[in-house]
Design a protein around this nucleic acid. Structure first.
Length: 278
DNA sequence: CTCAGTGTTCAGTG
DNA sequence: TCACTGAACACTGA
């Protein structure tokens, strides 16, 4: 479930069940891929007995502030999520199957039990998620290498235009670069470019000031709206490209009937509407 | 059976 | 050195 709004949803969920509580038990799956730079058992030992002060997010990264260091750092990868008992997981793109409420959830990589009886798990079906430890998460890689977070510190129009002007790659590629805008992923990039009426293959440095301003405004509004509805796809506005981008074999259209095309830009499948994006 | 995928990283290239 | 591109990673579900 992993672009900025989905990760922010995870942050809020984790804060709800973990903040102010003490970890009384940690169960780590024996997975040498998801755990990076720390053995699963060592990770579990570091958390056990620690009190969670807050849960923070930057871009697609989440971390816990504990009453002792190091702190745990989480990245959901393509399919990771935080889960709590008796609550449905956020469905992926357009998943027709019923939600899985089993506990512990399938593909759980860490399970935490708290002193008030609450529980939190992190899942990763495809093992592209990462769990790490850092002394000072915001001050070290990978978080220190991130660009601005559109929700936390979006630059003003002038600074945004200047940052764009320095880039030579395609708009799609620049938006996906976490060193430019942290938290933007494939669907957000496509949605923002569609609403800003910009061709994803355009060179970032070539935009006119008014075009760059449109890009910035939509970057903010799309993310703010998605976060406001807690990343619940069913509550995204009907006019969004999001709902229609996966239409079958080339017959997909926008809510206004314009044809949606798919091309590969910056190595990613890109849905766009040639009729409105220039 | 094949293949795409809401992501990141790294090797190769210009 | 910077910056971009494409392949690799690992595995599920369509």
């Amino acid at each position: 479930m992993p672009e900025l709004p989905e990760v922010e949803r995870g942050r809020r969920l984790a804060e709800r069940v973990a903040a102010g509580r003490t970890v009384v038990a940690a169960t780590a799956a024996d997975d040498r891929i998801v755990y990076e730079g720390v053995a699963p058992r060592a990770f579990a030992r570091r958390l056990t007995g620690a009190r969670v002060l807050a849960v923070q997010r930057r871009g697609k990264h989440l971390w816990f502030e504990l009453d002792r260091r190091p702190w745990p750092l989480f990245h959901f990868g393509m399919t990771g999520a935080f889960r709590v008992p008796d609550e449905d997981p956020l469905p992926l793109a357009s998943s027709p199957k019923r939600p899985d409420r089993s506990w512990p959830p399938r593909f759980a990589k860490i399970r935490l039990a708290f002193d008030d009886g609450g529980e939190l798990a992190m899942t990763s079906a495809r093992r592209l998620a990462r769990i790490r430890l850092r002394e000072d998460p915001p001050g070290e890689p990978p978080i220190a290498a991130l660009g601005f977070d559109p929700l936390l510190d979006l630059p003003g129009p002038a600074a945004f235009r200047a940052a764009l002007a320095r880039r030579t790659g395609t708009l799609k590629g620049v938006l996906l670069d976490q060193g430019f805008a942290a938290g933007v992923g494939n669907w957000i990039a496509d949605e923002v470019l569609y609403q800003a009426r910009l061709d994803p293959r355009r060179r970032a440095g070539d935009l006119a000031p008014a075009e760059a301003n449109r890009l910035r405004a939509r970057l903010r509004s799309v993310i703010e709206r998605a976060v406001a509805v807690d990343a619940d796809k069913a509550r995204f506005p009907r006019t969004w490209l999001f709902h229609r981008r996966w239409g079958k074999n080339g017959d997909a259209t926008t809510h206004r009937g314009e044809r949606i095309e798919h091309v590969t830009v910056a190595g990613r499948t890109t849905a766009w509407v040639p009729e409105v994006q220039r």
